[in-house]
Design a protein around this nucleic acid. Structure first.
Length: 612
DNA sequence: TTAACCTGTCATCGG
DNA sequence: CCCCGATGACAGGTT
């Protein structure tokens, strides 16, 4: 089962990189808008969002701490109670095929490792200032040690730690001061945290049930030890060591990015450089989201074992760590008929911004919105909402709809192409040049089109349109009508779908029109060239004919004079050319005509010319 | 800073 | 009359 997990992780990380790239683009876009947009209202929005982001960031920190606590809880529980552990270790500790997998499993199963980790992290927290914890974590980002020996993990990652500091669990328990317990009690008392924990506890329970690799009983047993009452007993270490490292590390990573808070959780999951491989070599140092990501991948592989990881699945899977992702995850599991107008209370779009009052306006007010209004909402500077929705715009659609679209028409290809576009970007290192010079230096046209596309994607998502924009635009009329008839859409949704289709069609038509116009211009230029060339040829021929004509005239005049000089009158004297001229009739007869009285000469005085 | 260019969108027309 | 493509005009963003 270790071997099965390896291909699961790698594509997921690629997708995470893809998501990160898209997200960076969006962030970059938002930043630019922030720079260029001086609209006062948007400033107000930006300020509000900033405050909201700070608030959400706090909540995210709490979640990180909570998730770290979950890991520690699990470990400590296994340490303290060896009941499930033998099963887990026996099932999980085969020779590693992938260091990540091994580390993860070891982390979940080995109790001794948790002790070392607690000790190390506590020592880190005590020894290093808060800012250096990050560097400590970063230093520990050297390639994970592919060993099944759990004790070799921490010493190898923290070589500077004196081994004497490693102490068994009871010592750690002793070090937990009552003030830390009090702090954790306060943490646990936070409603958001408890809600987050509840959400997290639901999914792992489901997840482990699908786990094909490890023993479900053990996993479930571990998770069942997560009641809130247990938390304070084991909390101090995580709150003391792990969360600061997480937060500092992320702030280190994203210090130059306008990092909307909800993205952080996903950013953890995305590029491997942000998580396990670079900064957090193993789940110990990695945010628990990453562990959950792996778990969710297990879940995916459990649900669809015969299918390789599909990018949309991965994307949605990754999103499942945010409330939006969870909602999507549930929507994906629910019958799709419920998706368009979900009454589950978990709305698709407002999830990441549930705490934001604007979100409700955005979601509810989007009915009957105008495009300009939507634009204002979509592209608020630094809007996490915008970033989120644009990030999810490509993949947020449930698979069932995409597959239905493929079944309905072969027009689903553009969608696949659209998915391929970002992967082309993915070939480029995501961290290359960072945000400042990466996303917008190349392929700006394409990115811009993607951004424009995502605008309609955002609108569609705002109204929970259960189709992709590509489907709406590219499906043939019959298939489109069939699709629309299959899903009960309300009036705003229908209007939006019609607008999206009209705009998309018109966009394509405009492109074709411009293409034709350019082709016409090119054709006309070619025709102009050919006509110019023909004109030059005709002019050459004309000049040639002119010269020939002049030559013939010259010859004719010469011959005329020659003939005229031969004419003699009755007295034998030559005719004067000024007084007479030679004229030829139609029958070929030539007459000598006096110039001064032509008519008379013609009628009376004409004489037959006689040439000697 | 400005102009040229590109692209999306809307209004309109015609098949 | 409706649908849909074509196209001019305009706006906004990019180079």
């Amino acid at each position: 089962m270790m071997d099965i997990e390896v291909p699961d992780i790698l594509p997921s990380q690629q997708d995470m990189e893809l998501i990160d790239i898209l997200w960076r683009q969006d962030v970059d876009l938002g930043a630019r808008r922030e720079v260029f947009d001086q609209n006062h209202r948007q400033k107000v929005h930006a300020l509000q969002r900033r405050s909201e982001q700070e608030e959400e960031k706090k909540q995210q920190r709490l979640r990180d701490e909570q998730k770290a606590l979950l890991d520690q809880l699990q470990l400590d529980e296994e340490t303290g109670e060896y009941i499930p552990k033998p099963l887990a270790s026996g099932a999980v500790t085969p020779p590693p095929a992938n260091p990540l997998v091994v580390i993860q499993n070891v982390n979940f199963s080995e109790g001794d490792d948790s002790m070392s980790f607690d000790e190390c992290m506590q020592l880190l927290a005590e020894t290093f200032p808060l800012a250096e914890d990050t560097s400590a974590c970063l230093d520990s980002s050297v390639p994970p040690v592919p060993s099944s020996d759990t004790h070799s993990l921490m010493p190898s990652k923290q070589p500077a730690l004196p081994l004497a500091s490693l102490s068994p669990a009871p010592v750690i328990a002793d070090r937990r001061g009552p003030e830390m317990d009090q702090a954790w009690m306060e943490l646990w008392s936070l409603p958001e945290l408890q809600h987050c924990l509840n959400l997290q506890m639901e999914d792992p329970l489901e997840t482990t049930a699908y786990l094909p690799t490890s023993i479900p009983d053990v996993q479930e047993g571990n998770y069942t030890y997560y009641p809130l009452s247990n938390a304070p007993n084991v909390g101090p270490n995580p709150v003391e060591a792990c969360p600061p490292t997480f937060i500092n590390a992320f702030e280190e990573v994203f210090h130059d990015m306008v990092a909307p808070e909800p993205m952080m959780g996903d950013a953890n999951l995305g590029p491997k450089g942000f998580c396990g491989d670079a900064f957090y070599p193993d789940p110990i140092l990695c945010p628990p989201e990453a562990v959950e990501a792996n778990v969710m991948e297990h879940k995916e592989s459990g649900i669809l074992p015969e299918l390789p990881k599909k990018p949309p699945l991965n994307a949605v899977d990754a999103h499942s760590h945010s409330p939006l992702g969870e909602a999507l995850e549930r929507c994906k599991q629910e019958p799709m008929a419920e998706v368009p107008d979900s009454d589950s209370g978990i709305s698709l779009n407002p999830s990441p911004h549930a705490s934001s009052p604007e979100k409700s306006v955005y979601g509810d007010g989007s009915f009957g919105f105008s495009d300009s209004d939507m634009d204002d909402l979509d592209f608020n500077p630094g809007s996490a909402e915008s970033d989120y929705s644009e990030m999810f715009s490509l993949n947020f659609q449930p698979d069932d709809f995409q597959q239905s679209a493929l079944m309905l028409s072969q027009a689903g290809q553009p969608e696949a192409q659209q998915d391929k576009k970002p992967k082309l970007h993915n070939a480029k290192p995501a961290e290359e040049g960072g945000q400042s010079e990466g996303p917008f230096t190349k392929d700006k046209q394409k990115r811009r089109s993607e951004v424009r596309l995502s605008r309609d994607e955002q609108r569609a998502r705002a109204l929970r349109i259960p189709f992709t924009v590509d489907m709406i635009i590219n499906l043939p009329v019959d298939d489109f009508n069939e699709l629309m008839s299959k899903h009960q859409l309300n009036e705003p949704q229908l209007a939006l779908v019609r607008d999206i289709r009209r705009r998309g069609k018109n966009k394509v038509a405009a492109q074709n029109c411009r293409k034709r116009k350019m082709e016409n211009i090119v054709g006309l230029e070619y025709e102009l060239d050919s006509l110019t060339e023909e004109k030059e040829l005709l002019q050459m021929e004309r000049s040639k004919n002119g010269s020939s004509l002049r030559k013939m005239k010259h010859q004719l005049s010469t011959l005329y004079l020659q003939v005229f000089s031969m004419l003699r009158d009755e007295e034998g004297k030559p005719y004067s050319p000024s007084d007479y001229s030679l004229q030829q009739t139609t029958d070929g007869s030539v007459f000598l005509v006096p110039r001064t009285k032509k008519t008379h000469a013609k009628s009376k005085d004409h004489k037959p010319a006689s040439a000697d």
